[in-house]
Design a protein around this nucleic acid. Structure first.
Ligand SMILES: [Mn+2]
Ligand SMILES: [Mn+2]
Ligand SMILES: [Zn+2]
Ligand SMILES: [Zn+2]
Lengths: 136, 136
DNA sequence: AATATACGTGCAACAATAGTGCATTGGACT
DNA sequence: AGTCCAATGCACTATTGTTGCACGTATATT
C-alpha cells in the first residue's frame, strides 16, 4: 500500500498542498463530483487551479470523468492500478434520478460490445440511470 | 409510413413551421448534433426557441440526447416506434476522436447489465469512443 | 549557497452553453 | 370577429469551461 504522496509521484507529477487537498477530498467520497462541488468544499481555492489540477489528474490517470447528462462533468478517483483501459478497468456508473448522485460501480465492468466494421473502439462510457440503493 | 406532421401530432404536440424545420434538419443527418450546430444551419432562428423546441422534442420522445464528454449535449432523432426504453430501444453511440462526429448505432443495442442489489436501472447511455469507419 | 529554470497558483478576462421572465405573435376554436 | 393558449423572440442572467499573464515557490544547475 502506497501513500497518496507516493501515488501522485509515481504518476509523474509533483506533490503540492493543493493537489493533496483535492486528492483527499476525492478519496473521502464514493461518488463522482463536479468542479463546483470541490469549489464549494474549500472556499479558498481558485476555480482555475481546481480546473487545472483536475485536468492534470485526468491526463495522468489519477481520476476519470463521467458524463451523465447534467451540466458539468463529474470526476472520481481511479482505483490503484487502474489504467483506464477498456477491457480491464472501465466500469459502470450509476446516476440516481432521485438524489442526483453519480456512483462508481467499480466491480461492475462494461461488457464487451460489437461495433460495425471499420469502427475501432478504444474507450467506453456506460451510465445507468434510475434509483440508487439509498433512495429505493 | 406516416408523415413528419403526423409523427409530431401523434407525440402530442402541435405542428409549427419551426418544429418542422428542426425536425427535417435532424432527419437529414445520421449524426447527433448540438444546439449550436442547428443554430449555425439557420441563421434566422433564435437560440431560445431552438433550446425549447429540442426540450419539447426530448420530453415527447421525438429526440434522444447523447453526452459524450465534449461540452454541449448532442441530440438525434428517435426512430419511428422508439419509446426510448431500456430493453428494446436503447442503442450504442459512437464518438470518433478524429472527426468528432457522434453516430447513432441504432442496430447495436446496449447489452443487459447487472447492477448491485437495491439499484434499479431505468435508462442507460453507452458511448464508445475511438475511430469511426470514415476515419479509419 | 547562489542562481537559473521550470512549474504551480491566483487573478482577470473571455467564451460557450444553459436557462428564465416577459411581451408579442399567431393559430385553433367558438 | 373575438377569445384563449401555446409558441416565439428579445433581453438578460447563471453556470461552466478556458486562456493569458504575472508572480511565487519548488527543483535543478553551477
Ligand atoms: Mn468510476
Ligand atoms: Mn441514438
Ligand atoms: Zn439516490
Ligand atoms: Zn471519424
Amino acid at each position: 500500500m502506497q501513500t497518496i504522496e507516493q501515488h501522485i509521484t509515481t504518476k509523474g507529477i509533483r506533490v503540492t498542498a493543493m493537489r493533496l487537498l483535492i486528492y483527499k477530498f476525492l478519496a473521502e467520497r464514493s461518488n463522482a463530483v463536479t468542479l463546483s462541488d470541490i469549489e464549494k468544499a474549500f472556499d479558498k481555492v481558485d476555480r482555475t487551479t481546481l480546473y487545472r489540477t483536475i485536468k492534470t489528474f485526468e491526463d495522468k490517470g489519477i481520476v476519470h470523468q463521467i458524463n451523465e447528462g447534467s451540466t458539468g462533468t463529474k470526476y472520481a478517483l481511479c482505483k490503484t492500478n487502474c489504467k483506464c483501459e477498456l477491457e480491464t478497468d472501465l466500469h459502470l456508473h450509476f446516476h440516481c434520478n432521485n438524489c442526483e448522485e453519480t456512483i462508481c460501480l467499480t466491480d461492475y465492468k462494461i461488457p464487451k460490445v460489437e461495433v460495425p466494421d471499420g469502427f475501432i473502439a478504444e474507450n467506453a462510457n456506460l451510465v445507468l440511470k434510475g434509483i440508487c440503493n439509498k433512495c429505493s
